Each structure stands twice: as C-alpha cells, then as structure tokens.
Simulated scan of single mutants.
Amino acid sequence: MSIIGFHRFLIATAIVFCAVFAAWEFRIFSASGGLGPLSLGVFFALAAAALAYYLANLARFLNRETLR
C-alpha cells in the first residue's frame, strides 16, 4: 500500500468516526437537550463533511493528476 493509499484510508476512518460521533451527540441532544451535545454534533458533522470533500478532491489538493 502506498503512502497515498494509506492516507486515503486514514481520512476515510476519520470521516466514519466524525459521522458516528456526530450522530451520537445528536442522539444525546434529542434525549436531554443542552447546548453542549448540539454544538459538538454540529462541529463533528461539519468536520465529516470537510474531510469527505478533502478525500474526494485529494488529487487536486496534492496537485497530482495520477492519483485518480
């Protein structure tokens, strides 16, 4: 596995973690309310979206066309 392949794997793992953690925090917010779980849920949902955008456009970020 190349370093770029491993990087893609790590980013994909981070996306899954952020999405699951955001869902967990939203569930806590719906059960008990409070600003803390809501803000964490929004933050990690945005982080998952940003990482997904980064992963989808990795070749452009690295200025390489051979990664696709």
Rank of each mutant, 00 (worst) to 15 (best):
V20D: 03
A56E: 07
A22R: 03
F61T: 08
Y54D: 06
F6N: 14
A49G: 09
A19N: 03
F26K: 01
A56Q: 13
F43T: 11
E25A: 14
A12R: 00
A47W: 06
L67V: 06
F26Y: 11
R60N: 14
A59G: 15
A23F: 11
R68K: 11
Y54H: 11
R8N: 02
G33A: 02
F6Q: 15
L10T: 02
S32L: 12
A47R: 06
L40S: 13
A31I: 08
S30P: 07
F9S: 12
A23S: 13
A52F: 06
V20R: 05
T66D: 15
F21S: 12
R8D: 02
A49V: 11
G5M: 04
L51C: 02
R68C: 09
A19K: 05
L35A: 12
V42L: 12
I28V: 13
L62P: 05
G33S: 04
F44P: 06
R64A: 13
H7F: 13
A47N: 08
L58V: 01
F26L: 08
Y53F: 11
F9E: 14
F21K: 14
F61I: 04
G41R: 01
F26R: 03
L46T: 10
L35V: 15
Y53C: 08
G36N: 11
R68S: 13
I28K: 14
L58T: 02
A22G: 07
A48I: 01
I4L: 10
Y53E: 11
C18N: 08
S32M: 15
L10W: 00
A19W: 03
F29E: 08
S2I: 05
F29H: 12
R68Q: 09
A52E: 02
L46F: 08
W24T: 12
A45M: 11
F61P: 04
S39M: 10
F26W: 09
G36K: 09
F29G: 05
R64I: 08
E65G: 13
I4S: 05
L51K: 01
L46E: 07
S2P: 07
G34M: 04
A19H: 03
A49T: 08
T66R: 13
N57D: 13
L51E: 01
S32C: 09
N63L: 12
F9R: 10
I28S: 09
G34N: 00
S39W: 09
A50F: 05
A12L: 02
Y54V: 07
A23M: 12
G41H: 02
A22N: 04
N63E: 15
L67P: 03
F17K: 08
F9T: 14
G41A: 03
A52W: 04
A56M: 10
A22H: 04
A22V: 06
A23N: 09
N63D: 14
L55I: 01
N63S: 13
A47F: 07
I4K: 04
A59W: 06
